[in-house]
Simulated scan of single mutants.
Amino acid sequence: MDLFDEPECTPINVIDYDGLVEYHGLLIPAVQANYYFDVLLEKIEWKSDQANIFGKQILTKRKVAWYGDKPFSYTYSNATKLALPWIDELLELKSIVEEKTGASFNSCLLNLYHSGEEGMAWHSDAEKDLLKNGEIGSLSLGAQRKFSFKHKRSQKNVSLLLQHGSLLVMKGETQSHWLHRLPPTKTVNTPRVNLTFRTIDETQFASC
């Protein structure tokens, strides 16, 4: 199933069972989205991500950054990051996403894909550091890219195009039942920045 060229009467329900994924379409006007895209490329402390493949730690071409209310630790792919203090532009974007969704976020994981050759394999955002069944607000800036979901049991696939300035929200039990990925493509040669606003479980953080 593909959800391409949908009308902008949002939100669109992307999956129809075992969770909830809403595509809100264009959240930020193009001029404003261009501004934030350029600022984030320049001001974010981008670093190559680490991934564990067949027991070996490698550095990815994709760059990442982790920001939050506090120096939260966040562990995925057997690597732990400490959150950096927010910059003003990230707080502005967080406020925009929170106003749209009604949710409250305390952290943000950013990804920088330099071209379509860089992507993300199937995974779910269900790390123990995150609030269980908490919302994740995914804001896309830059190149338009295909984004896919796959049900863990039925293997049902759903895909959509994430536009420059658009918002996708994953809710409820989505991470328990669905995988998602950003498939690589040779048809895109410009960069994309993805901001995933998240909620760290502060009760678990405080007990560490």
Rank of each mutant, 00 (worst) to 15 (best):
T75F: 03
Y76P: 05
I28V: 15
I44F: 04
A83E: 10
D38M: 09
S73Q: 13
Y23T: 02
Y113V: 03
E98Q: 15
S104F: 11
L3Y: 15
S107M: 03
G116P: 07
G116A: 08
D18G: 00
W66V: 01
Q57C: 06
W86D: 00
K100S: 09
E89D: 15
E8A: 13
I58Q: 13
P29A: 13
D49N: 13
I12R: 07
Y113N: 02
E118T: 09
K94P: 00
P85I: 09
W66I: 01
L110K: 08
K63Y: 01
H24P: 03
L41M: 14
E6M: 10
L110T: 12
N34A: 10
N111P: 07
G119S: 11
I12D: 03
K63S: 08
A65Q: 09
Y67D: 05
L27S: 08
D5K: 15
A103P: 00
L59D: 11
H114G: 05
D88W: 04
L20S: 12
L93S: 00
L109N: 03
L109S: 05
I12G: 00
I15D: 00
F54M: 08
A103K: 14
L27G: 07
P71G: 07
A65D: 09
K56C: 04
D69G: 01
S107G: 15
C108E: 11
L90W: 02
G68E: 09
S115I: 03
P29I: 10
V21P: 00
Y67P: 05
Y74E: 04
G116L: 02
I87N: 09
D49Q: 12
I44P: 00
L82M: 15
E22A: 04
V64I: 15
A51T: 12
I87F: 06
S104E: 10
Q50V: 14
T10I: 01
P71Y: 08
I12Q: 10
C9F: 09
A79D: 08
I96N: 00
N106L: 03
Y67T: 04
K43I: 07
L93E: 00
E6D: 05
L27F: 14
Y74L: 10
D88S: 14
I28G: 03
D16C: 10
V14T: 06
P7H: 07
L26E: 15
L59G: 04
L112I: 02
P11F: 08
K70N: 12
K70D: 11
